[in-house]
Design a protein around this nucleic acid. Sequence first.
DNA 1: GTCTATAGCGCGATAGAC
DNA 2: GTCTATCGCGCTATAGAC
Lengths: 192, 192
Amino acid sequence: MADRRTVILEAAARLIARRGVRGLRVEELAAEAAVSTGLIYYHFKDRSGILRATLEFISDRAGRYTADQVAEAAPAEPRSVLEETLLLEFQETEMVRENSTAWGELRASAMFDDTLRAGLEDATRVWNGEIAELIAAVLPAVPGDPAYASAQRLTALVEGLSGRWLSGGITVEAARDLMLDAVDVELARLAR
Amino acid sequence: MADRRTVILEAAARLIARRGVRGLRVEELAAEAAVSTGLIYYHFKDRSGILRATLEFISDRAGRYTADQVAEAAPAEPRSVLEETLLLEFQETEMVRENSTAWGELRASAMFDDTLRAGLEDATRVWNGEIAELIAAVLPAVPGDPAYASAQRLTALVEGLSGRWLSGGITVEAARDLMLDAVDVELARLAR
DNA sequence: GTCTATAGCGCGATAGAC
DNA sequence: GTCTATCGCGCTATAGAC
């Protein structure tokens, strides 16, 4: 079922969340995944290959848990769907913490590692698009451009608040409250 | 005038912006500052001491360039002061790029390095307070709590947008536009 | 306070057997 | 595909002279 490659990527996400990109040691990754270092180099070529693959793995997984959880919440009003989707990034579950931390790390690393940028931009664009669509579902009359701008602000705010949450500056609850108000503020503006 | 210690810190800010916290090599720092590695360890004890001192140096410097530039723009209306202050973080000058990059790096590092957290939280609190005061100058009738919440959102958004700007996701201009609209949105909300 | 020299080893990466 | 063994560089940190 879970092939070795996937096992390694899961371990990498866990480890990046725990130690950061800079703290990721290939040997430690091997231990965490219960494989040899040789196998890791066989599958991913080099250290930066591990990072690229992990970025992709994480953004896929985030897409999945988002879709799942919102679907399972049953057909709700569009506004709650938008709110819930954004709030999913602020939960004290292991996977969310892992994903958010690793995501922040990889974005930070992309400032100095060109090979990470492309994947990051793609994932960001997709995310912005999803949020823009949810906004459109709430306010169908609003044209695409302002909706996309609002989406960009909201996702950028998620990243900013995540940074503060994960570095201990604010609690999850505070982050959630600030996020909810931001949605309110943006929608009120678009509805004018 | 500029003692060796300061020269080292300036060089550290430059290098962190260029290579990241992860890429900072003590030997390279010594070369950049034109001193010996021994002197660096004499002044800062160890690598993480360098980081702590640089964080403090950077946030002091940011406070200074903010105050200076806003003062020099002559007595303007409070709203422009607020806007200008927030937009100062999005400029293609070397010092701003340096400060923003280093700040982002240090925030990311704080997720895994407890010794950085305290300084980071203090600096963030001061920053939030400054923005909250500027908001109060625009809308004196608004009570402190909602103003502070708006300030938190705005500064968190600055960090989020900076991350995207510096990792190549958006241009400075786009970041500025998004930021300006955010100010508009927040003020409209508070004025209601 | 400042430099030079070097210890010491952590860690990425590869070779080669199975 | 997967493992074991190992090489050798790169980097932090210290010792000791001036």
